[in-house]
Amino acid sequence: MSDNPLLEPIHGITLEDYSAACAKMGSGLSEADIAKALGVEVPVWQEANLLWPERMKQDETFHIVTLFGQYFGQADQHPKFSNLKAAVSAEGGANTDRIKSDKRFYEELEVARQVAYEYGLDGAQWIADKYGITLGDFQIAASNWNAQIHQDIAADFDGYNERQAAYRAKYQQLFADAQGGNVADDIEF
């Protein structure tokens, strides 16, 4: 693995650093905060931020992008970012912990976020407003639950689909009510 030239650090910024930085950017840290945490200046960070995605594009084995997802999920444990957090409310903090520890809660909010977009809302902003969870933290939870959810689907496909359908129905109802119903609600068979 270490012989892979695509994994060589860019300006001293490793893939672990880069992945954690992306997660933290999604949580509201500025580029200046990120650069400072990595011990570089903004122009150096911006080059790394441009070149790491290029490495992913060049790698047809998807190894780099897989590692990126893995490291992204471990952003909270990255030593360079451990003391850096964007300001969130106490409730937001509790929800953020919960989405990383409660799989069903994550699954439900993932559906809610998608359905919000289907009703013309900015889903990421809706989650932030309603639960105080940043997009970065949401995506960290996604990376961490991904493998388990795939196992769940393999083990009980119908059960998974039923849960998803129930979440969908719940949020479709919620957002439809807020906009005064769906456009074709009055059309019946």
């Binding site: 977009y117 289907e118 900015d122």
Partner: peptide
Amino acid sequence: NMLQGLLGQINH
């Protein structure tokens, strides 16, 4: 966002 909302209704 507006487009997504409209497509949401069509898909509904």
